[in-house]
Design a protein around this nucleic acid. Structure first.
Lengths: 223, 223
DNA sequence: AAATATTTTTAGATAAATCTAAAATTTTAA
DNA sequence: TTAAAATTTTAGATTTATCTAAAAATATTT
């Protein structure tokens, strides 16, 4: 069963929302996709008919197993294409998202298998996000939002929750990149900013807003 | 001005038809796209409105310069993707067409420029067809249909007008491939079949139907 | 040149994905 | 606990790309 690009965008968005919330609301999808609540309701009926989600009028909804499997397939394609764009075609981090949004809808299992092979079956994309395998299995990565990362524990920046160039230039100004070692030194309750040490040398202050977009993986060895 | 996939398919088809015929008919486009004449008329109105073609009711039509430029852009993308699929992802000749039909509609100049660069700015695709450059210039290749190729002149198979696997298996059975040297030995008027010599060794007979799909480039040195 | 056949266009429908405005339902709060 | 607010759904349009059937124009043939 092939899905339209519109259907796939809904499936992917619902999947990401239900990771955090369990049950998903019409409005949250409308906001995420920048569309109207009415359009979401229309699409929900279609996806229910196609047996991808559990949905009861006014009660919220979530993807069933079939829906989740489908979502993981789309995420796999998206992240493999991002990897291709950055590693092979030398796009920059913040240039790949829009193109990958298009490429993820190309329908061809053969294509995605060959692409994965060509890239060396990577487990993580250039943003540090895990790439599901062809069976839909996602490599587990205990990544934690920087705002929740424990004090004085060595971590590594492994993912960035946004691709805006404003954010990337801020990161580069602070000498932070994927793979940077990071330790939280102090939380400031007043503005929720955080002092961190980068690569065990540079002490920098990170705003609450920036911290919300940084994900850190615990490292098992001390610095 | 971005075009929809449907518009691009019409533009590409009209371009290919007017290469041979100059003026294009509604029915020929309908046949090529396996759609109804009425749908073609609908789309012609839209493309006329977008100033891509010259069209008068009941009188036929053809792309203007803007339309041709657009068509060459689409053909460039299609052939670069085919090259990528065969050279980089190791698809076989006859497996690439359907996927390239999807990939050619991805909208990103940056993507196609980076892809061309990665592939080494190839001038010809795996079927031997010329790839227009980013300005829309097509490398000239004096390729001639085998049915019109002069007797006793050395040529080289440089293009195949179809990608059907039936045809490719027939070619491989006759030991013919892109790059094979070929000389026409004799034309048979009765069934319009042709005797040719392949690589100056093997003498094989080629049906009119097969010959219509083979394109040959004159070589300047004798065998 | 008139009758017939073919081609092309128009008219009117349909399906997908969207919209706005209004109605229905649920949640919040006075 | 009922009134107000927020959320969700329905109803009715719109756009794009398609269709079939019928009408209009052109081409062919006797």
């Amino acid at each position: 069963m092939p899905f339209t690009a519109a259907e796939e965008n809904y499936i992917k968005t619902i999947f990401q929302l239900q990771l955090n919330e369990g049950m998903v609301s019409t409005n949250s999808v409308a906001t995420a996709l920048e569309t109207s609540a009415a359009s979401v309701t229309d699409m929900l009926k279609k996806l229910k008919l196609k047996k991808l989600l559990v949905y009861e009028k006014y009660k919220g909804f979530k993807l069933n197993n079939e829906g989740k499997k489908t979502a993981l397939g789309i995420i796999r394609k998206h992240r493999l294409w991002e990897t291709f764009l950055v590693n092979t075609l030398h796009f920059k981090w913040d240039e790949v998202h829009e193109v990958a949004e298009q490429l993820e809808h190309i329908q061809s299992n053969q294509l995605i298998d060959h692409l994965a092979n060509f890239l060396g079956n990577p487990q993580f994309d250039p943003h540090g996000d895990p790439i599901p395998d062809s069976a839909g299995k996602m490599p587990v990565l205990s990544q934690i939002n920087l705002t929740k990362f424990p004090l004085h524990v060595l971590g590594e920046i492994c993912s960035v929750g946004s691709q805006s160039s404003d954010m990337l230039s801020l990161l580069s100004h602070k000498h932070i990149e994927i793979g940077s070692k990071i330790t939280v030194v102090q939380y400031f309750a007043f503005d929720e900013s955080i002092d961190v040490k980068i690569n065990n040398k540079l002490l920098v202050n990170i705003s609450a807003k920036l911290a919300q977009h940084l994900y850190v993986k615990k490292l098992n060895y001390a610095s």
